[in-house]
Design a protein around this nucleic acid. Structure first.
Length: 423
DNA sequence: TCTGGGGTCCTAGGACCC
DNA sequence: TCTGGGGTCCTAGGACCC
């Protein structure tokens, strides 16, 4: 029997910003999405002010001003690096680890300790001391129950950040489940919550007591698994091997709407290159590429259009030149004049490891291109992403993102490293 | 004026085959 | 007039996650 522990960094992006600017402790702080559009992370103080997750910034302008909330554009170089620091501490202490997202991982403590709560309290202190990031830990017999426990660990300060449902009797578990709203259960999103509410299921205990056949019918195999996990029957195991990605996407909302074909393709061309360099880094190749464009779905005053198309490649590739040419063909098919485009993107699909590729009769990746890609990747890695691009680099692209307040790359760029003086 | 980005899995239905 | 049964593969859309 596994003992699942879910380690979750508290308000992760907000906490990362704070590590290097301790003057922000106890102050409300928010981190924004690309384009500085939505709120994607909030410190505890900001949550208390009623700022909800995902809210568009323009709707809370007043609150931001009134409480002088510290506002940051997202800084993924910093968050990614802080994440790997936290994860490496955990991986060293517990080899059975599944990194689930940038700020979360599951552990199996079964072979590590007889006292999971004690072990978790200690690791929590270690992480805070060594990296400066506060974490919460939930423990349970299934991943879903560990998630539930984590929720308690976060919201109930008397738990001091660790809460366990492992070796807990049914009566106690049910008392906990009764206080978990159905929409807070892992695997139950907006649509299913709505459906369950209509059917008078409002909390996790009511879900636990509902009929398996009915849930299977209404929510498919996925829903049934969630129900079983709530009952304490594991349906999701720990994924020890990092899962091979099956697709890679690069898409952006443009800083403003764009109507000219070549300007939109400037963006698409760059997205292809970003996505291609991502798969090259993972030593993968793709067998298909998808391109999509769309107008501003929030603007009710303009005519809407969105479309996407996929193209399959004869020989799998990670060559930016080949992929840009293919994207161009797809793009020409999709493009319609007279619309104002607000978003575009590229997906590289059907990925698999490069070594396993059998060259086709007409190979479409030239050796010279391969070397060129390697050179481009090296230069971009050294001098900053997209410093070298295919095509003509426009000086000022209309579609570029807005980012007004990005913090420094404290941990990944030499000139941003904080200096400590002796006095 | 201003509404993110990147993933996965499941299912139903159509095309096609024998 | 009659209109099978069983299988695979692919795709689009819908749900979820962070």
């Amino acid at each position: 029997m596994s003992i699942f522990a879910l380690i979750d960094c508290n308000n992760f992006y907000a906490s990362c910003e704070r590590v290097f600017q301790p003057k922000l402790n106890k102050k409300p702080l928010i981190v924004l999405s690309n384009n500085d559009g939505c709120v994607i992370a909030r410190s505890q103080e900001a949550k208390k002010l009623g700022i909800s997750m995902g809210v568009p910034v323009f709707k809370i302008k007043n609150i931001i001003q009134k409480h002088s909330i510290n506002t940051f554009s997202s800084n993924y170089a910093l968050y990614g690096d802080m994440s790997s620091r936290v994860m490496s501490i955990l991986a060293e202490k517990c080899p059975d680890i599944e990194i689930y997202s940038i700020d979360e991982c599951f552990l199996d403590l079964e072979s590590i300790t007889n006292d999971p709560v004690k072990w978790c309290k200690k690791i929590r202190q270690t992480i805070f001391k060594w990296v400066g990031i506060p974490v919460s830990i939930g423990i349970g017999p299934t991943k879903t129950l560990a998630k539930v426990a984590n929720k308690i660990a976060k919201s109930d300060i008397t738990t001091k950040g660790v809460f366990s449902l492992h070796n807990t009797n049914d009566v106690e578990i049910d008392m906990v489940l009764q206080n978990i709203h159905i929409e807070d259960v892992w695997g139950i999103g907006r649509q299913w919550s709505k459906m369950l509410h209509i059917n008078k299921i409002f909390n996790a205990l009511e879900l636990k007591k509902s009929s398996e056949i009915w849930i299977r019918k209404k929510m498919g195999i996925t829903g049934l698994r969630t129900l079983k996990e709530i009952k304490g029957i594991p349906c999701h195991r720990l994924e020890l091997e990092p899962i091979q990605s099956k697709s890679v996407r690069c898409s952006r909302t443009f800083g403003k709407a764009v109507g000219e074909k070549e300007k939109v393709f400037d963006a698409i061309r760059l997205f292809v290159q970003i996505a291609a360099s991502k798969i090259r880094k993972k030593k993968l190749a793709c067998r298909a590429i998808q391109v999509f464009v769309s107008t501003d779905r929030f603007n009710k005053n303009i005519e809407q259009y969105s479309n996407s198309a996929v193209s399959t490649l004869i020989t799998p590739t990670s060559d930016s030149i080949v992929l840009v040419l293919e994207a161009r063909r797809i793009f020409n098919r999709l493009w319609k004049d007279r619309y104002l485009y607000r978003k575009g993107g590229v997906l590289l699909l059907d990925l698999f490891p490069k070594q396993t590729i059998i060259p086709g009769f007409f190979p479409d990746t030239k050796k010279e291109n391969y070397q060129l890609m390697q050179a481009i990747d090296k230069i971009n890695e050294k001098f900053g992403r997209n410093c070298l691009e295919l095509g003509i680099k426009s000086k000022k692209s209309e579609w570029k993102m807005k980012q007004h307040n990005v913090s420094s790359k404290f941990t990944t760029r030499w000139k941003d490293i904080i200096k400590v003086s002796a006095n």
